[in-house]
């Protein structure tokens, strides 16, 4: 079996992409747990919220009503876990009639910035 070359340049960065709504499946929650593990292990880590994933950041959500942990509250705590960047796709917000005032974490970027983010090399992308 082929083994990886050992002369790697810098350590790979990890980008976790959140594409699904916060509840209804455990993807958002378990994705966030993966983010926390990346931060805890000192990996250079960033997060991108896109498509339905932007709902995860909605300030006005009451997850106690369905006995779940609040995803927006967990997301807003990410900087405490050494997560470098939290990006939010501007088009996804606009398509859902949301704006920066509705979300409680992240930096809003244009679709072309998102494309650059996804295309850059030396990065592992995990999709949730």
């Amino acid at each position: 079996m082929a083994k990886p070359s050992t002369d790697k340049p810098a350590q790979k960065e990890i980008l976790l992409v959140f594409r699904h709504a916060p509840y209804g499946s455990a993807l958002a929650r378990e994705g966030l747990e993966a983010v926390l593990a990346c931060g805890a292990m000192g990996a250079k880590t960033s997060v991108l919220y896109i498509n339905e994933g932007v709902w995860q950041l909605l300030e006005a959500q009451n997850s106690a009503a369905i006995d779940c942990k609040n995803q927006a509250a967990m997301a807003s705590a990410l900087p405490l876990y050494d997560i470098d960047d939290i990006w939010v796709d501007e088009d996804s917000l606009r398509q859902r009639n949301l704006s920066g005032a509705d979300i409680n974490a992240g930096k809003i970027i244009s679709r072309s910035r998102v494309q650059t983010l996804l295309a850059s090399s030396n990065k592992s992308i995990l999709s949730f």
Partner: peptide, 20 residues
């Protein structure tokens, strides 16, 4: 095992492909 094994894979494998 724990999520640390996923972080290790994401930093050391040449590519990570998500199937979900």
């Amino acid at each position: 095992s724990g999520l640390g094994q996923l972080v290790d894979a994401a930093t050391n494998a040449d590519r990570v492909i998500t199937f979900g």
